[in-house]
Amino acid sequence: MPKQRITKEMVVDAAFEIARNSGMEQVMVKNIADKIGCSVQPIYSYCKNMNGLRQDVIEQVNHFIQEYVVSHINKDDLFHSTGKSYIRLAQEEPHLFRIFILHQRVGISSLNDLYQSEANPHTAEVIAKELNISVERAKQLHLNMLIYTIGIGTIFSVTTPGISTDEIYTQQEVAYEAFLKQALRNEE
């Protein structure tokens, strides 16, 4: 029987599946080799260090999440449905959500830096137009909701047996109303 050719893609895919099912802390050479069904040697040939492999997994996680969110948003209610899609992600893919939220972000020294690196640059324009507020107020509203959704999503992803999605969505809506009220007040 010929030997199976192990590729870097197979290694990264196996590491991603391990991270998805058990968390990034379980992404270890032995676990990857067991998942692929090979010895650890081919894994070491692609993984000069585990940090590089973990970065590849984070990139795959980010790509997965982008596709997930796009597939779960309602284009007629972009702002609300995006926040809800992140909450759904936290429920359905808690390990991937935590990896996405907790991975190191380099070059971030302010909330504005974070917003610039994480948010779609056109989202604030869409929100401004939809709510008839300035783009600057829309950015602040969006940033507030990003921070809130990340926080409540993180809580949601680490609770057992789990908070109901209805309770989470209600709380998210309460936060939105408060942040919107503040944005409208500041607009005057």
Rank of each mutant, 00 (worst) to 15 (best):
V158T: 07
V174L: 01
F79T: 11
H103S: 09
I163R: 10
S157M: 11
N74T: 01
H103L: 07
Q104S: 09
R54P: 02
L114F: 15
F156K: 04
F97P: 04
K84M: 07
E173L: 09
V27D: 02
M1E: 12
K8F: 01
V57S: 07
I87V: 13
M50Y: 07
K139H: 14
T154N: 07
Q182F: 14
V12E: 08
K30V: 14
A90D: 10
I32L: 13
T7I: 00
V70D: 09
S39K: 07
I152V: 12
I87F: 03
D166L: 00
I43L: 04
M145F: 09
N144G: 12
S110W: 09
A90N: 14
P94L: 04
A33C: 13
K129I: 02
S81Y: 03
Q140M: 11
N62P: 00
P161L: 06
K35S: 10
K48E: 12
N74K: 01
Q66T: 12
L96Q: 12
K129S: 15
Q60K: 15
N51G: 13
L111C: 07
H142C: 11
R185V: 03
V106L: 08
E125S: 11
E136A: 11
S45T: 02
V158R: 06
H122V: 01
Q41I: 11
D34K: 05
R54D: 01
L143A: 12
I168M: 05
V12R: 01
R105N: 05
V57C: 05
Y148T: 03
G37D: 03
A124F: 01
H63I: 03
I155N: 04
E173I: 08
Q172M: 10
K30P: 07
P161T: 05
V174K: 00
D77N: 10
Q26A: 06
L146I: 06
I36G: 11
V135P: 11
R98S: 06
M1T: 02
F179M: 11
Y115V: 10
T165L: 10
A178V: 05
L180T: 00
T82F: 03
G162D: 09
I87N: 03
R20G: 00
G107N: 02
